[in-house]
Design a binder for these strands. Structure first.
Lengths: 223, 223
DNA sequence: TCTGGTGTTGACCAATCGGTCAGGATGTTT
DNA sequence: AAACATCCTGACCGATTGGTCAACACCAGA
């Protein structure tokens, strides 16, 4: 016969909390913990036990809310892809190249800065061969890149910038900004800092903007 | 009592192979397989079973040669760090900035190209917070960066290039080149290619060299 | 032919994995 | 207060994990 212990003293649900509130709070806690753990150890290397402990919940509770490890992971990826899609959503040939490129670099840098764990989660997924994001890469993201590439080409035709390959320019901006999230441990180790301050990030953004704009022959925006 | 089966027909050691040869061949096979698996799944996510299968050996044999999972991983990291250290080993203030920077970009690009699995292994280690490489980042690699940074600064003082922050310039080159190994899945997905050809890599190298040199105000080398 | 070192491997182990489930606790509604 | 839905969680499961070990195969030198 199974012996049932009395429940532990401290419950996960706070006293007097309405049902909806509990769900929202626990889900938020789980997603934050899971993003950290998946980012650090990859999909296979992450364990639900670890995620549950960091969220301050029993493992069973994590599965109660998220259904499965795979489902939790997919949900995190989708949340991160929404953030990606919000980047530089509408630009036109009529815009100023310097303005757009600087906004591109700045917003991508802020994405790495505001969601470092999400950025690393994305990086780990790609590093592992993108088993869950294959379709997204060959579909939505590809269209996003092609559309912006065409605008860059038209700018080059109008003599507003050098005729560089626009796709590789996009990769250059992605990699340079992504680096400060993914390789944070390397950056901190080499610079000897404990963490990057807002001022550091601002200086790096200015550096990247200056070098890349000048490197592509874009005249800086007039003040 | 334990029942012992007769050994399987096909042995790992080839007939008539001397002892030294066997060790060398098996170790090479194991290291190659382990580099792939660790790169794809990270330290925790990699399994010895998987490594053994990809090397075509029983799991016990992998442990016989490598001792432990940790030992195998450390050995792979050390091999990769040797390759890093061979990069741009001796440069001087008297050298031509354009020549050195182009050689830097080119050799780093070749490292990503020639050892993509090793590059990804390194990336996965950093992504996970560099638990095994902390000392290297804060020690040897830091000195490497500082020495080259000082030379870049002296070039700037002599008016051979713009006074950009040399450490961030090094990070820019690292990230841009590393990207083509680590995010290979993304690059291929978006460009629609099956793999990057030598010609592709040459074009990308030329693009990066052009943009970064121009962006830093370095006069291209005279032909 | 014997002996010792090297290579090989299936059986086995404790620990941990993702996931299921029963059954109790709590909040909301009627 | 009764009925119902949501929330909570320890016990449990089969599979897999890194690692050990004893038994065996094979080659070298004596």
């Amino acid at each position: 016969m199974t012996q049932w212990k009395t429940p532990s003293g401290r419950s996960v649900r706070e006293k007097g909390e309405t049902n909806g509130m509990t769900r929202e709070r626990n889900e938020r806690e789980i997603l934050a913990a899971a993003e950290r753990v998946f980012a650090r150890h990859g999909y296979r290397g992450a364990s639900l036990q670890d995620i549950a402990e960091q969220a301050g919940l029993p493992k069973s509770n994590v599965l109660y809310y998220m259904g499965s490890k795979r489902g939790l992971y997919v949900r995190l990826l989708e949340r991160m892809m929404e953030r990606w899609n919000a980047l530089l959503d509408d630009i036109s040939v009529e815009d100023d190249p310097a303005e757009v490129l600087e906004a591109f670099i700045r917003s991508k840098m802020q994405l790495s800065r505001r969601h470092p764990e999400g950025s690393r989660l994305f990086a780990a997924e790609i590093l592992g061969g993108a088993p869950f994001l294959q379709d997204y890469l060959r579909g939505g993201l590809r269209d996003w890149v092609q559309a912006r590439a065409r605008i860059f080409e038209q700018w080059a035709e109008r003599g507003l910038m050098d005729p560089v390959d626009p796709v590789w320019l996009i990769f250059l901006i992605w990699s340079a900004t992504q680096h400060y999230a993914d390789f944070e441990a390397q950056v901190l180790g080499i610079t000897g800092k404990e963490e990057l301050s807002d001022a550091d990030v601002e200086r790096i953004t200015a550096f990247l903007t200056q070098v890349i704009l000048k490197g592509c022959g874009v005249r800086p925006r007039e003040a």
